[in-house]
Nucleic acid binder design. Structure first.
Length: 107
DNA sequence: TCCATGACTTCCG
DNA sequence: ACGGAAGCCATGG
């Protein structure tokens, strides 16, 4: 059930992301040792809402800082609202100063 | 076992 | 600079 190495790894790293910070799929995938499986990171995030404890998937964005997974949330701008609630400015589904707020799991 | 899908990333035109 | 296509790995049918 919750012993899926890949999914669990993704969830573990995602929960390591500090508030007010954001990470990327590629960075997480690289932290897992599967740099080429950036798509799998997002795929695993698909169950983040049903995973326990819940994973702050809203802190995970693509390499461009774009909220590509916002559609996986219930609200249309829920993901942006969550990020904004943490002090992250989001405009047009894009994280402002993303590069500055970027957090690396291995770093 | 093979084919199809996907919250990505990179390259080519 | 912009848009489209291919490559990548893991999961499900």
């Amino acid at each position: 059930m919750n012993d899926e190495n890949f999914f669990e790894k993704v969830y573990a790293v995602a929960r390591e992301i500090p508030p007010g910070r954001v990470s990327t799929y590629g960075a997480i995938a690289e932290a897992l040792g599967t740099k080429g499986s950036a798509r799998m990171v997002g795929y695993a995030m698909n169950g983040a809402g049903t995973a326990t404890p819940p994973v702050p998937a809203h802190r995970v964005v693509n390499r461009a800082g774009l909220l590509t997974g916002k559609r996986a949330f219930q609200g249309e701008s829920l993901m942006a609202e969550l990020l904004r609630s943490e002090g992250i400015e989001v405009i047009n589904d894009q994280v402002v100063d993303f590069q500055h707020l970027f957090w690396h799991p291995l770093k």
